[in-house]
Amino acid sequence: METLTYRFENGSRSLPAGPQVVGVVGSGNLEVLIESAPLAGACEIQITTAAVGFGAIWEAVMRDFHQRWPLADARIAINDVGATPAVVSLRLDQAVETMLGTTP
């Protein structure tokens, strides 16, 4: 198992306030949890994955996600057991859309 952590500063899109947590599990190999958190405008993403050695790919997928969804004060946890980058992007989008009730 490998744990990767990414932090993106100066987000411009806030999540609803309060202790809401949204989880999206649409495939048997990925879980995304998203919640509002006081992070001084940042978005923190922690990934726990069984696919060791793919940090550069994860970073590219997370940067792409942050460009689509520049979240502020958001904490995201991803539990992965070998999902493809396309599935990861889809599940992240679904979690944010559920939380915001919107599309990018």
Results as ranks from 00 to 15, higher is better:
Met1Arg: 07
Glu2Ser: 12
Leu4Ile: 06
Leu4Pro: 04
Thr5Lys: 14
Thr5Tyr: 09
Tyr6Met: 05
Tyr6Cys: 03
Arg7Val: 15
Arg13Leu: 15
Arg13Tyr: 06
Ser14Cys: 11
Ser14Ile: 03
Leu15Trp: 00
Ala17Ile: 05
Gly18Thr: 07
Pro19Arg: 15
Pro19Ala: 15
Val21Leu: 15
Gly23Gln: 15
Val24Gly: 02
Gly26His: 10
Ser27Glu: 10
Ser27His: 14
Ser27Thr: 14
Ser27Cys: 09
Gly28Leu: 15
Asn29His: 12
Asn29Glu: 11
Asn29Thr: 13
Leu30Val: 09
Glu31Gly: 14
Glu31Thr: 13
Val32Asn: 00
Leu33Asp: 03
Ile34Glu: 00
Glu35Trp: 03
Ser36Met: 10
Ser36Leu: 05
Ala37Ser: 15
Pro38Asn: 10
Leu39Gln: 07
Leu39Asn: 06
Ala40Val: 06
Gly41Gln: 11
Ala42Thr: 00
Glu44Phe: 11
Glu44Gly: 07
Ile45Ala: 06
Gln46Phe: 04
Ile47Asp: 05
Ile47Tyr: 05
Ile47Arg: 08
Thr48Glu: 13
Thr49Ala: 04
Ala50Phe: 01
Gly53Phe: 09
Phe54Lys: 13
Gly55Trp: 07
Ile57Gly: 09
Ile57Trp: 07
Trp58Ile: 00
Trp58His: 10
Arg63Asp: 12
Asp64Ile: 09
Asp64Arg: 12
Phe65Asp: 01
His66Gly: 02
His66Tyr: 15
His66Lys: 13
Gln67Ile: 12
Gln67Pro: 02
Gln67His: 11
Arg68His: 14
Ala72Asn: 07
Ala72Pro: 02
Arg75Pro: 00
Ile76Cys: 01
Ala77Cys: 11
Ala77Gln: 09
Ile78Lys: 00
Asn79Gly: 09
Val81Asn: 10
Gly82Lys: 05
Gly82Phe: 08
Ala83Asn: 03
Thr84Met: 06
Pro85Gly: 00
Val87Arg: 05
Val88Leu: 12
Asp93Gln: 11
Gln94Asn: 05
Ala95Trp: 04
Leu100Thr: 06
Leu100Cys: 13
Leu100Gln: 09
Leu100Arg: 06
Gly101Ala: 08
Gly101Phe: 09
Thr103Arg: 14
